[in-house]
């Protein structure tokens, strides 16, 4: 059984983290990261060629995380595989013991390390969620019976600070109708706005895990604002980090405040430490979520 699903069903405030598989076959750095963040997390996302850059597959890496006793959230993007491969990998994931799946569209290859690649996008994330929900009911996308069904806890991405929000809200609700039972959000900076988002999403029954991104340096802020699609750091937060004598320390203080605020609003937090894994424990301890 997915511990993440159980914890959310019990109304527990959950913590998720994230690791990236290596470019290569040496899993030691990823495993070291899991050792640092795993003890604080209900589950850890394992990214799938994130940013359209080549990495070892989320499928194998998720299993390696599971073998360490940490529950993975297997990520599947629609960018690199057609409907045959996506369904096939989902069946494989279930047999490997992966119970949580985060279904996302995926970044365009033009922004990645293989800009010459063909972006597949045979399916979009909503369609793949519908198909995954069908596999949970024991059939493939053509309606044919599976010899052995899945029982995935299906998640999706949500973008509460996107503008225009009404269109993204409609998309989020479509994803719930398609089978999403939890969302992990893009980084949250505006707590009031996020509280309104929660009011809009709660009636659908979906659980929302709010993104907390560690703004560990002015350089990270510049990267987000200039390079990362679908996210902007608000000026007052950017100024706070830029003006700090120790930006790394200030970013942890900021993250602690964000987690504290989100405790009263969201169903959990998804911590993105951007490589500073040791900060995860400090943030959660500081926010009173861990001893």
């Amino acid at each position: 059984m997915s511990r993440l699903r159980d914890a959310l069903a019990r109304g527990e405030f959950v913590v998720t983290g994230e690791v990236a598989p290596p470019l290569g076959t040496d899993l030691s750095a990823m495993k070291a990261s899991i050792e640092r963040i795993g003890p604080y997390c209900h589950a850890v996302n394992v990214t799938d060629n994130q940013g359209a850059t080549l990495h070892l597959s989320s499928l194998a890496a998720s299993r390696a995380v599971l073998d360490m006793g940490v529950e993975p959230i297997f990520q599947q993007t629609c960018r690199d595989r057609n409907r045959l491969a996506l369904q096939s990998d989902l069946l494989a994931a279930w047999t490997l013991g992966l119970e949580n799946v985060l279904v996302v569209t995926g970044d365009d290859p033009r922004g990645g390390d293989h800009p010459q690649a063909k972006g597949v996008f045979d399916l979009d994330s909503t369609q793949l969620m519908e198909i995954t929900a069908g596999m949970n009911e024991g059939h493939d996308m053509l309606g044919r019976d599976l010899a052995g069904a899945t029982d995935f806890f299906i998640g999706g991405a949500v973008f509460p600070e996107a503008d225009p929000w009404d269109i993204q809200l409609g998309r989020a609700l479509s994803k719930v109708e398609a089978g999403a039972r939890f969302f992990q959000s893009q980084a949250i900076f505006d707590m009031e706005r996020f509280a309104r988002t929660m009011d809009e999403l709660r009636p659908s029954g979906v659980k929302v895990i709010a993104g907390v991104l560690l703004l560990k340096s002015p350089r990270v802020i510049d990267f987000i604002n200039n390079k990362l699609a679908g996210l902007m750091v608000p000026d007052h937060i950017a100024e706070r980090i830029r003006a700090a004598s120790d930006p790394a320390k200030e970013s942890i203080a900021l993250a602690i405040e964000q987690v504290r605020a989100l405790r009263d609003i969201a169903d959990g937090v998804h911590i993105m430490p951007l490589g500073n894994d040791d900060a995860v424990g400090r943030i959660l301890t500081g926010a009173g979520l861990s001893e």
């Binding site: 960018r79 996302v104 569209t105 970044d107 365009d108 033009r110 922004g111 972006g119 996008f121 979009d124 994330s125 909503t126 369609q127 991405a157 973008f159 996107a162 503008d163 225009p164 269109i167 993204q168 998309r171 479509s174 893009q186 699609a229 679908g230 996210l231 902007m232």
Partner: peptide, 20 residues
Amino acid sequence: CPKGLLNGPCGGMWGGMCEV
């Protein structure tokens, strides 16, 4: 849509503009 998505927008949309 550069990704050819039937159901969009994707998460990269910002201020109503395309991410790609």
